[in-house]
Structure formats: structure tokens, C-alpha cells
Design a protein around this nucleic acid. Sequence first.
DNA 1: CATGAATGAGGTTTCATTCAT
DNA 2: TATGAATGAAACCTCATTCAT
Lengths: 218, 218, 218, 218
Amino acid sequence: MSTPVQSTLEPRKTPLQARSTVTVEAISEATIQVLLADGPARLTTTRVAKRAGVSVGTLYQYYPNKESLLFSVLDQHLGNVVSAVEQACNEHHHDDLKTMVEALVTAFVDAKMGRPDISVALYSISAALNGAALARQITSRGQVALSAMLKTAAPEFQFEQVEFTALMLFSAMAGATRAILEAGALPEMVGKLRQQLPLLCYGYLVNAAVRTPPNSKS
Amino acid sequence: MSTPVQSTLEPRKTPLQARSTVTVEAISEATIQVLLADGPARLTTTRVAKRAGVSVGTLYQYYPNKESLLFSVLDQHLGNVVSAVEQACNEHHHDDLKTMVEALVTAFVDAKMGRPDISVALYSISAALNGAALARQITSRGQVALSAMLKTAAPEFQFEQVEFTALMLFSAMAGATRAILEAGALPEMVGKLRQQLPLLCYGYLVNAAVRTPPNSKS
Amino acid sequence: MSTPVQSTLEPRKTPLQARSTVTVEAISEATIQVLLADGPARLTTTRVAKRAGVSVGTLYQYYPNKESLLFSVLDQHLGNVVSAVEQACNEHHHDDLKTMVEALVTAFVDAKMGRPDISVALYSISAALNGAALARQITSRGQVALSAMLKTAAPEFQFEQVEFTALMLFSAMAGATRAILEAGALPEMVGKLRQQLPLLCYGYLVNAAVRTPPNSKS
Amino acid sequence: MSTPVQSTLEPRKTPLQARSTVTVEAISEATIQVLLADGPARLTTTRVAKRAGVSVGTLYQYYPNKESLLFSVLDQHLGNVVSAVEQACNEHHHDDLKTMVEALVTAFVDAKMGRPDISVALYSISAALNGAALARQITSRGQVALSAMLKTAAPEFQFEQVEFTALMLFSAMAGATRAILEAGALPEMVGKLRQQLPLLCYGYLVNAAVRTPPNSKS
DNA sequence: CATGAATGAGGTTTCATTCAT
DNA sequence: TATGAATGAAACCTCATTCAT
């Protein structure tokens, strides 16, 4: 998905064979399971391996160390999320602002809520990993895609500093979503989130848009 | 500040003598220092004690375990932040919506940016602590104070579900602020944040307000 | 041997491979060695591991904690002793009372004196372990076996409360043996013990037997 | 009471003043309490001091170290017991064997059962203290007193090796009593003990007595 | 390739003991 | 004399990682 920051964090071998893929997948999923069941403090490589139904040794065949395992899991998830955002943005260039916002929110929330358990579990990982680095990277991708889309909005919705506006939008959206996720991601709450998030985004953009003095008389 | 969740997390003894107070303060500060200097993975009780200029034993006289130390530090900081928010909210009941938002944002950002290093450092703690519990607690306080204030806003700014609106507002604000903090809290960025956050909040509220049919006469 | 009382005390993994068995055996023996050489206060898991020629980690692969290690060693020894007693009892049902006593004493003393060093070493363990629980369990087994045997003795050697009589017998025997062991288990003393213990036991039983009024007039 | 083995174990100062005596008494009693309430593993000097209502510092004014505290408590108790036995023996020289035994048992059981909680608590201490040393010492005093008494018994109750006989008697009695104590010292059990112990002792002595060919005319 | 026993550095925590107040 | 905060050695235990099988 997204580019790893350090080379040590890269998975040791790219699984080419079918069996390997299954194994890697199992380990990845087991990581989430353990995280959710036992918490970040109890997340040990041995436990993950056991839950995945393989031996520790096998785990270390695919990941050079624990950090890389965590990184990989986090990267995959965040990568999915931004990819969804990127796609939504790309598909709505030159669209109506409201439509843009609608698409953005839907893509983001769908991606995050597809497996809310994963999303929640990963919050606890990113800290240990100085996830900030990765988060910044991801955020940056979102920012770029968003900016690009916003630049194609109607002339009365242009911004002095699109990049910053995009960052605000993306991080505010992430913040609100996180709160709902950490509160348990109850369907009712998620529903409200889907309904309110566009209001938040749209409201902000309208307010932040450069007041082009509707001067242009001619 | 806020009430600890578990009894095991409560400080072991309340420092009554002057000497003790100093010691506890030093330990608390040292925790932040170590966190910033060495990262969460290197945050060991021994290291904290050393940095605080006391022995490990002393640390354990005041905190029953490492978790309680982290909890205490986190609790103190988050407590400060919500307290600031609460005060701002209480002081602006019945005010103009724009003023309310302005006050809210200023209080929040001021509190968070007073010691940006601390704010950043603590993000990494809360994960290890299943800080979600504490975070929810804190968020909840913010939500209550915000709701109370919003209820006193002008009639055209009333909301179908104030509580949820408050939660959205608070968590969006927190999300945006977090992004800036994790990006390094550069003064320039912080400036922009202070300027844009009100737009975000105000824009959302205006949009989320119940469309009171403008007194449909006729 | 006998059933552990608490699950925490149970060994962590049953050694299946040959290597493991050797390791576990070595740890068990090392525990005794350290106990004898350094005393109970110096009995640390690190020291035991070192003496066993393995790393601490290995020790903890087989015992979840220090207590379980001690428990296991104690259990094994006491189990051996009662087993010997049980066998002796079972083999002498319906025998002459004197023979019964002789067999009982021999079995018990043989078992205890087989490795007097171990016996002595373990006295100091049982206290730390609230060995009372285990001791009661063991004593109980002895009591049962003894009672069963005594019930098959000649009619003039029947008892009002066999169970209690058995307990007295067993614990008196244990007490006398312990005194000799703690005095150094000098061969001379042990010899005397073997000679006097039957007198103690037989004398008691004869005295405690229900005085069947030799009514049988003629 | 009895003479301490090592000089370091002696109480630091002999309490002459009333206040001190009270303090020392309180500490002594607190030791038992803590032992019973929290077990030997939780017996810390701080805890004992707190329970006694004094500060740790004060405890260390009366005992140079923890060991000496434990020693003192144990010594006092065991001293009481042997003293009772000694007195009983001294008072029954030249008496009937049955009376001797009766007196011995009564004195011993009374002393042990006066505060069964203490008796039980102390079993766990003696191990930590290499109580064997003290136990031997105490046993030895009992042995001496007992031997002396037995020598004054009727001619048909003389023994080849009184000392050993006395040791057997004393330790068997101690063993049986211990079993009852560790089983909870239920009044019913204690009653049976008082009734059966004389049978045990008397039976043994009768059996162990030198069979003086009762004729040896001329 | 897979296994899982072994490793051991290092983290957390306790507690006997001291000493300034 | 009493206090109790401070000390720090040392104990227990974990867990990422390796490597012989």
C-alpha cells in the first residue's frame, strides 16, 4: 500500500505462494484479534503466532521483528482508508461542492467503519510505533487528494490556502470519527455521524472560502 | 482533577509535606521529559525516577504501579484542558454564537498549546493505558459543558440533538488540533489553526441548527 | 502425584520432548541443591536456573512462577512418601497388627530417609507455601490408607474412631521422624528411630483399641 | 526466655520503662496478627509497625532487624511451651508413670492451645529463620526435663536410652499436636487430642521400657 | 520451510533499613 | 525518642528473538 518509512519495517519476504499469503493473512488478522482481546500490553509475538495457528518461528519468517508486523498491519489499514479517499476525490473533480463533501465523507466513513474493530484496535498501535510518522504520511496523501479536488470546485469556493484547509477538513473528520469509534461505534451513533459529518465539512468550507467580493461587475 | 477510573490507578499516598509535594511534582514532570526525550518505549519507571532525581522506591511510594503514574499524568493534563473548556462555556451562556465559538476555541487551543510538548507526549500514553476510558470521560465533560452553553444560544441556533452536536464539535476540534500538534506545532500552523478552527465550528453549528421555518407567516 | 490445589500452581507445560524432560528434572533437582546449599532465603529463581544450567526464561517456561516450582518439588516428594505408605497399607490388610505397624514404619522411614537432605530441605519450603494446604491433603491420603488397613486388623484391635487414630499415628510418626531429620539424620539416630517408632505406634494402638470387655465368661 | 543463639538476634534494648514494654508487646502481637492475616510472605516490618500503631523507625529501636523480631516472637512462644513442660516434669518426679504422662500432656497441650493462632502462625516463621536451630534448642530443653522425670519413674519403667526415648516422646507429641493445629484446632479435635495423646505416650513408654527380667532372684 | 525450546537483557516492583526532621 | 520519606539492592518475571532439529 503506502510506502514504508524505514527499510527495517518492510516485510521480510513478499509472499508469492498461495500458502504464504494465507499465512501472512492469518498473522495479520491474529494481530488484530489479540489486540482487541488482550489489549496492546498483551500483544506478544508468541501470542499472535499461536492465535494465527503457526509457530513464532514462522511469524519471524515473514516479519523481521515485531515492529514491522505492527507497522504492516497499520499501514495496510490506513492505506486502505486513504486509497478510498483518494479515489473518491479523483472521481469528483469539478463536481458540486456538496457532492464532493458527500462523496468524501461516505468514502471515509465506509472505509473506517468496514471493520470498526480494526480501526479501534489500531489506535492503540500507532502510539507504540511512533505512528505519528505514518499518520503524517497518510494524512499527507489525503491532503493532497483533497486539495486537488477542492481546487476544481466552483470559483466561489476557492481557498487562500487549500492545503491547510484540506488538512483541517481531513483531521476534523478523523477526530469526529475516532470519537464515535472509541465510544463503541454503535450503529445509531454511526448513523448520526454519517449525517452530521457532511454538515461539518460543508459548513467549514463555505465559511473558509475566500470571500470573492462579488464585485465582478463588468 | 477528573475522577480516576480504577482504584488501582489512584495515587498511593497524598503528599502532605512540602518535600513530598516537590517530589511528586518532579516525578510527574520527569515522566513527560522522558517521554519526549526517549519515546514511549523507553519510558521505564527507573528512568523516570532517575530523571526526577529520586530513587525508584520513592516513585513507588506515590504511585502503586507504572500504569497509575501514566494515568495520573494524563488525567492531570486532560483535566486541565476540559476545565478550561468548562470555564469558557460557563462564562458565555446566552452570548452571541460567534462569541461562544470564539471563546471555546481560544480556551481549547490555549490549553492544548500551553505546553505542546506535553500534549504530544501524552498521545502516546493514552494508547498504552486504554486511554479510551479516560478519553471518553473527559470528552463527556466537554460535551456536557458545551451542550449547556449551546442551549442558551439564540433561538435560531438550536439543535435537534445538542449532545451529539457537542460531541461532534469537541471531537472535530480535538482532531484538528491533534494533527497540528503531531505535525510539530509550528507557530505558523498554530496561528492558522486558531484562525480556522472558529470557522470550522461556526460553520458546522450554523449548518446543523434546526431550520426553524422562518416564522412562516402568510 | 497428588492433585495440585490451585491452578496457578500447576506446571505451565508438560514436557513432551526428551530434552524438556531433562530440563525439568534438572530444575527440580537444582531447587533442592540450592535450598540445601544456600538456605530458603537465598532460593531465588535465578539461582535455581543457574544451578540447573539453564536460563531463567527456561525455568519460567515450565513453571508459571516461583511458588509453583516449590509446590511441584514439595508435591513430588510428599507424594512419593504417601504413595509408599499407601502401598504398604494396601499390602498388609488382614495382617497381624505388629506386622502392619512394622510395614508402615518401614515404608515411611525408608521413603523419608531415602534422601534425607531433600526431606530436610522441604520443611523450609512448606512454610513459605502455606504448605499446610498440601500437608493436609497428603496427611489425608495417609489417613485414609491407614484407616483402611486398621479396619482389617484383628477384632481385639478395633477403634472407636479409626480416622482419628490414623491421624494421630501418622502425625506422631511424622513428628518423630522430623525431629531426627532436623537433628541431622545421623545414621545412629535413624537406626534408633527405626527401632523405636514401631514401639510408639504399636503401643498407641494397643492402648487405643476399644477394650472389648473380655466378657466372654466361660 | 531461652538463650538466643546469635547475638545479632537479641533485642536491641531491654525495655525498662512501662511505655517501652507496651510498645514491644504491641509489636510482638502485631507480628502474629500480620502473620495470620496476611501470611508469611506479606510479613513486612512496615506492615507490622503500622498494625502495632508505631512507625517503622520505632520498631527498629527495639529490634536490630527483622530476623531478630521474628526470632524474639518465636523464642517467646516456644520458651513458654517448654517452660510449662519443664515445670510439669519437675513437679512430678517420682510419681506414677500414668500421672507423669497425664501431667506432661496437659501442660504441653494447654501451652500450645492457649493461643492456637499463635502456634499456627509460628510454624510459618520457624522455617524462614532456620528455626531448626531454635527448635533443636527447645526440644533439647524438653528432652532434658523429660529425661530427668522419667529417671524417677518406677523401676519397671526404666529405659535403655532415656534421652532418646524422651526425644521420641516429645517430638511425637509435637507432631500430633501440630496436625490438629494445622487442621484448624477445632475444639472437638482438640478434645480428642487431649484424650488420645496420653494413650500414645503411655503406650510408647510401656513398650519401650527395659524388660527387666522381673525375677532376677539372688 | 516450520517448529518451539532456549535465551537473557531488562523491566517492574518490593521491602529491609537509614536518617534528617 | 518517634517519625516516615527516601533509598537501592535485588527479586520476580516477560518476551522479542534465535537456532538446532
